[in-house]
């Protein structure tokens, strides 16, 4: 079984996000960038499937700028076998990425695509689903557990109020949720090995995909600042405020 794992380069989860002064987007210059955390989980799961003898090859893919090579190197250091960068400076949006991935699936012939359930920059949570629709494959989204069988895969999904297990006929799409696993650290020997693993760069054009943005961003603003609290003199004043101002009791 060949696995394709798409990974996105995003602003590091622990960096405080700042909005550009002109409101055109989020500040990314001189900001620490890392692999989307859900994609890290997807890579980890693919590597575990390979270590368990269920997968034969892992191909990491990123659609983005030249620097996304670093993100792919991280995936290679975690255990992916080779990587493909679909290089574009366009702002990537889910439908375009799904089309790129569809083209790559047709070219590489994986039987499983494992994605993060969403990227933490745009929080779209669409790419996996769109890819499933474009390919006509089954999908197991928000996966918290994966059990690979013969020609099928059982995916436990995190849904409102509980868990749901779906059995998918391969080929299939899985999107990873937070509890699927704890991603490993890239070890030094594996970082060294990763530098020798193949990393191919292609363009969206060569795959016949137009990645031009279909959405226009009107304005990006910071969330409203929380107002300072007030101190009340006693319980009676608190109850009065809860009744008359907050209107919660």
């Amino acid at each position: 079984m060949k696995i394709l794992v798409p990974v996105k380069r995003v602003v590091d989860y622990n960096v405080k996000i700042r909005v550009k002064a002109d409101g055109s987007g989020v500040e990314t210059a001189n900001v620490k960038m890392s692999m989307n955390p859900f994609d890290e989980i997807a890579v980890e799961e693919a590597v575990r499937l390979k270590e368990a003898g269920k997968a034969t090859e892992i191909i990491a893919v990123s659609v983005g700028p030249a620097q996304a090579q670093e993100t792919l190197r991280t995936a290679l250091a975690m255990g992916a076998d080779r990587a493909i960068l679909v290089q574009t400076d366009a702002e990537t949006q889910p439908l375009a990425v799904a089309k790129v991935l569809k083209a790559l699936v047709e070219k590489e012939g994986p039987t499983l695509v494992v994605l993060g359930k969403q990227a933490i920059d745009d929080d779209c949570n669409q790419t996996g689903q769109m890819l499933a629709a474009l390919l006509g494959w089954g999908q197991g989204t928000f996966a918290s557990k994966i059990v690979a069988g013969e020609g099928s895969i059982a995916v436990t999904r995190e849904i409102d109020g509980g868990l749901e297990t779906v059995d998918l006929k391969l080929p299939a799409i899985v999107t990873a949720d937070l509890r699927l696993n704890e991603p490993r650290y890239a070890s030094l020997p594996n970082i060294m090995k990763a530098k020798k693993k193949p990393l191919e760069t292609v363009t969206p054009d060569s795959l016949g995909v137009d990645v031009a943005s279909r959405l226009t961003t009107l304005k990006v603003v910071e969330p409203a600042k929380r107002k300072a609290g007030v101190k009340v003199a006693d319980v009676a004043a608190l109850v009065d405020k809860l009744k008359s101002e907050a209107r919660v009791i």
Partner: peptide, 28 residues
């Protein structure tokens, strides 16, 4: 990150470092 990896790789080849991990994110 490249500088750090470069130093550690050279140290590993020299036998000063036996093994190691490099944090891929601030969370790590």
């Amino acid at each position: 990150a490249g500088m750090l990896e470069g130093i550690l790789e050279a140290a590993m080849e020299a036998g000063e470092v036996l093994d190691g991990v490099v944090a891929a994110s601030k969370a790590q």
